[in-house]
Design a protein around this nucleic acid. Structure first.
Lengths: 209, 209
DNA sequence: GTCTATAAGGGGATAGAC
DNA sequence: GTCTATCCCCTTATAGAC
């Protein structure tokens, strides 16, 4: 058991736990308000030990951000449903983003915080990747419009609305919980949200199906 | 000019400048990341002098938050348009919230940050006022549904969507600017947003007009 | 009301033993 | 890889002169 594989496993194990803890603490306290000691405690090790795995707070934060963005971009793959009609594709997209809010609310909050602050830690490379994915989706919607399959709306604003209306169930969960009288949002709440957002947006842009 | 009135004017003048500067700095850096010195500098006085007007950072932040919430609640007065039809009232509501995003983006960001963090500084009194206003709006929408003036959707989710879709133009402005290719959102962008959100939501919930 | 000086604590990061 | 000890800066807040 002195093989290299063992060491790698332990490092990976600890790094995963640290990243998970960091996502939670950064979401709750923001970048500046999150003490490394709290993240370390949540991950089950000391602050100094955490700094052994991630040499600086900034780097740890950027790793969290990168991981969230990767996940976010996966759900932007609106085009990856060959042969389906616009209504099915859009519903798939909306449900994917709701699912992201449900399964990774802390990641969504970290990303929201970053954008609200003016994206000071977001690399140009990540921004470019985001834009690239979006461009493809915008083009597709424009094709649907040209084909008369939906109302002639501005595709960019459509995506702003989808992102906002789906991410709010993660980012603003504390407010939504109060309004709905929940201590925590349940799976059925997310299902209600998916149904509502899909219904209003598809009907609202005049999708024919 | 040794009258009390003169002193009061100066105090009010400085307090207003401090609150305005604080709203901007808190929006950009979050509560923990905003140094008092930066707020003081933006307001044109020393940190110690700022602390003369606002004895603690927490209190200053709460004053900013309270001011934003008051403004937010004004725009929730959906009912204050007696005699109008549902379509007009909802459009008025949506345009009001877009206008809030346009004219007070920093306030919107401060509020967003607070909610994302779990609303640790929001007093129960403010929460209660928010809920109270909302209850009235929810009832009104339920009446419209009962009268068959719109689709039978869940009113709570309708408001979550309106809030999210309008506030995103303030909170996520840095992202929207990148997508739209703007250095800063212009009045015409907010007009486009208002038209889009109104169109999609009114049509999406089947409002008859 | 405004200034200088300073207390007091938090938190990121490093050094070095084991 | 993990621990103890420590450095050092930043920031909130207070004391007290003017």
């Amino acid at each position: 058991m002195i093989r290299n594989g063992t060491k790698e496993t332990k490092r990976q194990h600890n790094e995963l736990h640290i990243l998970s803890a960091a996502e939670e603490i950064f979401a709750q306290h923001g970048y500046n308000g999150a003490p490394l000691e709290l993240i370390a405690e949540r991950a089950g090790l000391s602050k100094q030990n955490l700094l052994y795995y991630f040499p600086s707070k900034k780097l740890l934060y950027q790793k969290v951000l990168e991981s969230v963005l990767d996940n976010w971009l996966e759900f932007m793959a609106l085009l990856d449903q060959p042969g389906k009609d616009p209504a099915t594709k859009l519903e798939h997209y909306i449900r994917g983003k709701i699912e992201f809010s449900r399964t990774r609310p802390n990641g969504s909050k970290v990303y929201a915080n970053e954008i609200i602050s003016g994206a000071p830690h977001l690399s140009n490379e990540l921004k470019a990747r985001l834009l690239q994915h979006l461009e493809a989706d915008l083009k597709l919607v424009n094709v649907w419009i040209a084909e008369g399959q939906m109302d002639p709306i501005d595709p960019a604003h459509l995506f702003f609305m989808i992102w906002a209306a789906t991410q709010t169930y993660a980012d603003f969960s504390s407010q939504i919980e109060i309004v709905l009288g929940r201590s925590k949002l349940e799976a059925s709440d997310f299902e209600d949200a998916a149904k509502f957002v899909t219904h209003v947006i598809l009907k609202g842009i005049g999708i024919k199906n």
